[in-house]
């Protein structure tokens, strides 16, 4: 599916972050972050808590205004854009916390992922392929789903919008291994369709199983990055990530 010529053809940088600096109030959480991401590629951002991973996604989505640096999505500068405008540029964001509307039904949550309700009907197939059980729970209130099912709903909502870019924040947290494997399959399928995925993870195993490249965030800076090359990489990374 991916060979050298295809990779050259799809060399357009879907996400391009340069010298990004941002934070809340006086302090800086992110200092001098730069990276690129192409279509059909999964980049795993690793690092311990509090090092800026979530802030990175929030800055890209426009919830935190960068203090300096730039963000480009498909060549378009979105550094100071509003979140709702960015969200409509075929980008799906799954936050780590408060990611679904617990008071709304599964169906209503999914509807919010697409522009019009008729589109959802057409794309229900996507949901069924990803997670068949979700289609049985359409009129259930999202808050009554189990933790794992809520994460699945989150991913379904992202999938159903058929984005070109996905920003995923620790979606495997607290999930059973079988579900994690299912999610890995879904993300691999998305990648094969050309989606660029930025994956925030603390679960090194999960990241290893699907990501092409990695970058380790420490106190707001990327201290190490590269391609995943088998179990050696894993050993090298462990020392950065252990408690």
């Amino acid at each position: 599916m991916r060979n050298g010529t295809e990779r050259e053809a799809v060399s357009e940088q879907i996400i391009s972050v340069a010298r990004l600096r941002s934070g809340y109030g006086g302090g800086d959480i992110l200092r001098d972050i730069s990276f690129d991401l192409s279509a059909g590629e999964i980049l795993a951002i690793l690092g311990k808590n509090g090092m800026g991973k979530s802030t990175l996604l929030k800055t890209i989505m426009g919830f935190v205004k960068p203090k300096s640096g730039s963000i480009k999505l498909r060549g378009v500068d979105v550094t100071n854009a509003e979140p709702h405008w960015i969200a409509r540029r075929s980008i799906a964001y799954t936050p780590q916390e408060f990611a679904i509307f617990r008071e709304l039904t599964v169906e209503e949550n999914l509807r919010l992922g697409v522009e019009s309700d008729s589109l959802l009907k057409q794309r229900l197939g996507d949901v069924r392929d990803a997670f068949p059980r979700m289609t049985e729970r359409m009129s259930q209130r999202a808050g009554t789903l189990s933790g794992g099912e809520q994460k699945m709903l989150l991913l379904c909502r992202a999938i159903v919008s058929r984005p070109d870019i996905m920003l995923i924040d620790e979606i495997s947290e607290g999930l059973q291994p079988t579900m994690i494997e299912r999610m890995a399959e879904i993300l691999r399928t998305a990648r094969s369709k050309g989606v660029a995925i930025l994956l925030i993870e603390q679960n090194l195993n999960f990241a290893l199983s699907i990501a092409d490249r990695f970058a380790i965030l420490k106190i707001g800076e990327i201290v190490e990055s590269g391609r995943f090359e088998g179990r050696d990489t894993a050993g090298k990374l462990e020392k950065h990530l252990r408690i």
């Binding site: 989505m61 919830f63 509003e82 979140p83 709702h84 969200a87 409509r88 964001y93 936050p95 408060f98 990611a99 679904i100 509307f101 008071e103 709304l104 919010l112 992922g113 522009e115």
Partner: peptide, 11 residues
């Protein structure tokens, strides 16, 4: 319910 989440979904 959650203005930020709504904005993040394009609203």
């Amino acid at each position: 319910m959650n203005e930020d989440l709504a904005r993040g979904l394009g609203i």
